[in-house]
Design a protein around this nucleic acid. Sequence first.
DNA 1: ACAGACTGTGCGATAAAAGTAAAGAGTCGT
DNA 2: ACGACTCTTTACTTTTATCGCACAGTCTGT
Lengths: 230, 230
Amino acid sequence: MSTLKTLDRGLRALDIVSRRADGISVADLALDLEVDRAVAYRIVATLEQHGMVLRLPQDGKLVLGAAVLGLERRFEPQFRRRARPLLDQLARQAYATAFISVAQQDKCAAILVSEPEDVLIRVGYRVGSTHAISKGAAGIAILAGRPPADGEPPEVTQARTSGFSLTKGALQQGAIGVACPIGGGTYEASVGVVAMEDLDVDRAIDTVKSCARALSALLTGAAQVTRDTV
Amino acid sequence: MSTLKTLDRGLRALDIVSRRADGISVADLALDLEVDRAVAYRIVATLEQHGMVLRLPQDGKLVLGAAVLGLERRFEPQFRRRARPLLDQLARQAYATAFISVAQQDKCAAILVSEPEDVLIRVGYRVGSTHAISKGAAGIAILAGRPPADGEPPEVTQARTSGFSLTKGALQQGAIGVACPIGGGTYEASVGVVAMEDLDVDRAIDTVKSCARALSALLTGAAQVTRDTV
DNA sequence: ACAGACTGTGCGATAAAAGTAAAGAGTCGT
DNA sequence: ACGACTCTTTACTTTTATCGCACAGTCTGT
């Protein structure tokens, strides 16, 4: 599957700019991208034209433009809107931080997070944060949603059998994560909860499984099933 | 200032995908972009590699990927974080929906919105929405922040003199907008309020001006001035 | 005023993308 | 079950968009 070098560089440039909260000069961007400055200028001009980046006229530094907000606003709006209440319910029922994650190459990214309200200490999990897909309950659940592959880690196989994945301290010392694949594996996503060691694991597994069924129904268009499964 | 055709197409593709809430096939994308299907496949492969789009395995349709969420999370985080309380205050004081907008070529895009809480009817203004920069108070205020240009509309010149712009029904029947440029024009942004006809205009002008001073201080790094100017 | 760093811009050589064509994969209807 | 269809992907040649050099303009600080 061939890709486009110019587009690839542009997207990498966008990523670099996004990671510099205080801006970056075109010259520095060129260094980071390992391209000639002239190339960087053309990339910037194109990104600028689309509003993806803008230049602070005070010092010429590049920062993200307003267009990224437009994109974010359109990101699976109906999915988020429909998934949100289910996730909130899950967080309340499990007394834990609930999240939905999707596969992104070999990474696993949280796209929606809900924190319980009536809990003293809760685990924070930021939307957009990523970790290796083979680490952590969320990623393992996603892998378990895929068809069995030889050479896959044993915990993935086990998660596929049991219908959920459970990790302790995989991503964070003292944290327990429980997750289930959603969308029947077709969406490459998972839903789960993460909490401190005092998590009621059995209860959490049940509630996460239930929520996963409801979300899967949403993703496959069988919305009317939701009320029953929740 | 030359731009890159390949990158431009990729960004256009991203925009097209983002506007189709229910997904779009590669073939349709190729039609919209007016490129050969083979080209569209290469663009999609590149965007996919960066997580900007993903393909629904159920029907192969393209939707926005999780990477856009990562971008949004990094969009001027410190600016938003610091601007938010000021905007909330403005909304409360003016009893109107307050917003911050930035220039984006010949468009004007809202990047931050705050709605008042103790008001019965409020005007909605969505983050990311755009309109022509020469229409509406927000855009005119931005233009007024730029150095005078000959051939500019008279309302821009007037706004530059008076320090604010005022429009009635320019974008929405029955709505009044008041806005001031911020960042001394260097940021190409404006702050303002929008409300129904019952807006206390004089009061609104004062509060918006005051907020604009505070925000300008934030943008130019003179953060310690904020408390005094608010 | 000058040095130095940064910013922006033509232009020819060349690598990269476009545009064929054609094969493999999956779907649908008969 | 079979063929017709669309979608997807790859291989290869042609075209052209991009690269990267060099040069000019701009700003900053000394």
